[in-house]
Amino acid sequence: MIRAAIVGTGGIAGICHIPALRAAADRAVIVAGVDVDAVRVKDFCDEHDIPSAYTDLEEMLAAERPDLVHICTPPNLHASQAVTCLNAGAWVLCEKPPCLSLAEYDAIAAAERDGGPYAAVVYQQRFGSAARHLRRLVDGGELGRPFVALCQTTWYRDLDYYAVPWRGRWSTEGGGPTMGHGIHQMDLMLAVLGDWVEVRAMAGLLDRPVESEDVSMATVRFANGAMASVINSVLSPREESRLRFDFAEATVELTHLYGYSNENWTYTAAPHVAAERAAAWRTPPTDVPSSHTAQLGTLLDAYERGERPETSGAGGRRVLEFIAALYKSAFTAHPVRRGEIDAGDPFYRAMNGEP
Rank of each mutant, 00 (worst) to 15 (best):
G116Y: 05
G144A: 10
V122D: 02
L159R: 06
Q124K: 00
Q125T: 13
P165W: 13
D139S: 06
G116H: 11
A111Q: 07
W155E: 13
G128E: 10
L150H: 13
C99N: 01
V148P: 01
E173N: 15
F127K: 13
V121L: 08
E173F: 13
Y123V: 03
Y156K: 15
Q124C: 00
E104N: 08
D114F: 01
L137G: 09
W155L: 13
V164G: 01
D114S: 06
C99S: 10
A110G: 07
L137M: 14
G140K: 02
S101A: 08
Y105D: 05
P97R: 00
W155K: 11
Y118M: 07
W170L: 12
Y161L: 07
Y161W: 15
D158K: 04
W170H: 07
D158A: 08
F127L: 12
W155H: 13
R113T: 05
A120Y: 08
L102Y: 09
R157M: 15
A111M: 07
F127C: 13
W170G: 10
V138Q: 02
V148F: 11
G128C: 12
V122H: 03
A110H: 10
T153D: 13
V148L: 08
L100C: 01
A103D: 05
R167P: 00
D114Y: 01
L134I: 07
P98A: 10
E173K: 13
T154C: 14
Y162M: 11
A103T: 01
C99L: 05
W166A: 04
S129C: 04
A119I: 05
G116W: 09
Y105G: 07
L100Y: 06
R132K: 09
A110K: 14
A109L: 14
A111H: 06
P117N: 12
P146G: 08
D158F: 09
G140Y: 00
R145P: 06
V164H: 07
T172P: 11
S171K: 11
Y118W: 09
